[in-house]
Amino acid sequence: MNDTNRWTTTLDIWSSKIGEGTYDLIFLVRTESPAVTHSKFVGIKKFKQSKDGNDISPTAIREIMLLKKITHENVVKLINIHINHVNMSLYLAFNYVEHNLYEIIRHHMDKLNHSINQYTIKSLLWQLLNGLSYLHRDTNMQVVVTIWYRAPELLLGAKHYTSVVDMWAVGCIFAQFLTLKPLFQGVEVKATSNPFQLDKLDKIFKILDHLTLEKWSSLASLPHWQQDVRHIQGHK
């Protein structure tokens, strides 16, 4: 509590809203601590209110639980969680990351109009794999990804999957570093809770050819392979 009060009272808002994501507002804040001779920057995220009110989504709870346990140079650090006692609003403090991968890719596409240097790609990929290796080894955790990087078995409704799905995601990101475009840019149908995404699978088929039992024997055990096999094959 003392630590919380300390960094709370010494907050100095450096900049107003700098981004938006799962959370409502993201601030760049400078903190000062007697123990540190110079200040450091943290990003503070205030919890976005869902349409139903102050509901904390299952995804957010899970993310917070995981981040609290993680300490690794290649994984963003959750410094602190603060709950306002008056209205119980929720703030998360992270190490401030100047640029995310999306911004780097956009920068090269729009400003430089030039592909990313191969040594830079190598460095970025190493950091990504190093962090992922830590997550797999020490926390036995898989990363939930957006649809662009979602592995076929997830799209086909697999309930028991392994860290292999993360390797698929890394491969997609690697390709995006090289070409500056998403490799499988599917449009997610969010109306249903059904993990089956035909558009995304279609994008994969165009590049990697169709799925067959001969190539991938465990296909038969995936729920949507059984239910939608005609639908899938109809898109040849």
């Binding site: 009110g53 102050n54 509901d55 904390i56 709870i61 639980m65 609290k68 709950i83 119980m88 929720l90």
Partner: peptide
């Protein structure tokens, strides 16, 4: 009631330190 449910949830998360495993 809905507000109370949400507030109490945050109290629980706070006391658990968000570690609810």
């Amino acid at each position: 009631l809905k507000m109370e449910l949400s507030r109490t949830e945050r109290h629980i998360l706070k006391e658990m330190g968000f570690i609810c495993h």
